[in-house]
Design a protein around this nucleic acid. Structure first.
Length: 460
RNA sequence: UCCCCAGUAGCUCAGUUGGCAGAGCGAGUGGCUGUUAACCACUAAGUCCGCGGUUCGAGUCCGUGCUGGGGAGCCA
């Protein structure tokens, strides 16, 4: 007999004589001649209530089943005479697959997120983390569906890279050399002896690869893990995170903004549509304003303004900032928060940043002082998307590389894309975990990724 | 890396001026009961984060280290 998942059982239209259910015991309560067991199998937030009575051959053993134990229940799905649930299972047979000893650390009460991080291998068994990771799964599929519906091709960009100029951030080195290996005269490893015959790193972005494929397949995207060796310890940073990076040929900064806004709206709407119960949990217990925030994102247009306009707003603001605001300085967290949380109270797309604070590949504007950069900032999260129209003019790109200290020779293949059939193109990167934070209201990035990697922490 | 806060039972926390180590929940045992994070009674459970110092006496004061959290920088 095949097992039926609980999400299906709970949606039943009529009673069923015989079903098989497998899952974990969330709680058990004894009554006079029977026992109530709440079973969860991860298919949905809700548990199903099982009635195990003294007719069962192993009733004495069933009464010893603890929270966290695994069971298989054969029984009939009947309408519950009790209040609080429509359906319940009258057990004919309860197979005890395993008993969790009383050291099982999850209790039927709320735990702090800090404690649950120390048992990251068990936290998906809680309501909140189960819900969060179901949402993460649905959101991933929604990303692919969004791009598929728009005719984008999915590119698997490499994880190991020899390129160190993809973006800002410290890199993780990839090597098969060990400490005993002979070193070159400067005391560093001789990477000619290494696996690839050169220094290699974990990727910080799939952008350069995506650009090459956009200039062949038209509209493409990558969606995979990226790595930053920054020793930053904040609630918004992890060393390993997932990024979504679309890249579009024949697309300018304006089309880029349109896609970014459309994509965030689509993804938020998808989750609201597909995970209503899981989202409801976050709206009730994690962030009371969540539904209003999400509704606002889906329904209202994002504000669009230039970096220069943003600077003027901040300069006129009657607020003391710790860092001064003037053209040429990057916006600090306090500035971003003022704009999105106090001034506009909604997401904003900022464009045309000074060229001095942005990477070489962003397209130089006609004013020669700004580049066609685009950041989308949202209340609470800050920068969720960073992108640009790319510099497609070979000579300008070479000049920008040299000005920022990059060796054009080494990136010959990247420059080839501007030699042969170069065309305007644009793209951006969206931090997948930050999107999850936005959608769930979870305030710490460590709680939206299964096993977070942060400085001095690699237990799981 | 810098600034701030915290660390006491399995979990969440209280602990007064430096003077016997506490509660709720969880767990165990028993009772009650179509129960809903059930209810009632009893029981067990501690390196008060580590090290050093002050003191007749330190969970409490001082120094230092570790761990966790928040903020900043950097970024997605």
């Amino acid at each position: 007999m095949n097992r039926t998942k609980i999400n299906k059982l709970l949606k039943a239209k009529s009673p069923k004589n015989k079903v098989l259910l497998k899952g974990w015991v969330r709680t058990r309560r004894d009554s006079k001649d029977f026992s109530f067991m709440e079973i969860n199998d991860g298919s949905c937030l809700k548990n199903i209530q099982v009635i195990a009575d003294s007719e069962l051959a192993n009733y004495e053993a069933v009464k010893k089943v603890t929270t966290g134990s695994a069971v298989a229940v054969t029984g009939s799905l009947i309408e519950s005479p009790g209040r609080g649930q429509k359906w319940e299972i009258k057990a004919h047979k309860v197979e005890i697959i395993s008993i969790a000893p009383d050291s099982f650390p999850l209790q039927k009460k709320r735990h702090t997120d800090e404690f649950l991080r120390t048992i990251a291998h068990l936290r998906p068994r809680t309501n909140k983390y189960g819900a969060g990771f179901r949402i993460r799964s649905e959101l991933s599929f929604a990303v692919h569906r969004f791009f598929k519906e728009k005719g984008f091709k999915y590119i698997h960009s490499p994880i190991i890279t020899g390129s160190d100029c993809e973006g800002a951030g410290e890199l993780f080195r990839v090597t098969t050399l060990d400490n005993g290996h002979p070193k070159a005269q400067d005391g560093r490893h001789d990477y000619a002896e290494d696996f690839f015959g050169a220094e290699t790193y974990l990727t910080v972005s799939g952008q350069l690869a995506a650009e090459m494929f956009a200039l062949a397949l038209g509209d493409v995207y990558t969606f995979g893990p990226t790595f930053r060796a920054e020793k930053s310890n904040t609630r918004r940073h992890v060393a390993e995170f997932w990024m979504v990076e679309p890249e579009m040929a024949f697309c300018d900064i304006s089309g880029n903004m349109d896609l970014g806004e459309e994509m965030i709206k689509y993804l938020v709407a998808s989750v609201l549509d597909e995970c209503p119960e899981d989202i409801e949990l976050f709206a009730r217990f994690v962030d009371k304003k969540l539904m209003r925030v999400l509704d606002n994102i889906v329904k209202s247009d994002f504000v669009r303004m230039t970096y220069t306009e943003a600077i003027e707003i901040l300069q006129k603001a009657r607020r003391k900032f710790e860092f001064p605001v003037e053209f040429g300085t990057d916006l600090q967290t306090e500035h971003e928060r003022f704009l999105t949380e106090h001034y506009l109270k909604k997401p904003v797309i900022l464009i045309n940043y000074p060229k001095t604070i942005k990477p070489f590949y962003m397209r130089l504007n006609d004013d020669d002082r700004t580049v066609a950069a685009m950041d989308i900032l949202t209340p609470g999260i800050g920068e969720i998307i960073g992108g640009s129209q790319r510099e497609e003019r070979l000579d300008v790109l070479q000049a920008r590389m040299q000005a920022t200290g990059l060796d054009p020779e080494k990136h010959w293949w990247y420059l080839d894309s501007r030699r042969y059939g170069t065309a305007p193109h644009s793209g951006f990167g969206l931090g997948f975990e930050r999107l999850l934070m936005l959608v769930t209201g979870i305030s710490n990035i460590r709680d939206v990724i299964p096993f977070p990697r942060t400085p001095d922490s690699i237990e799981f």
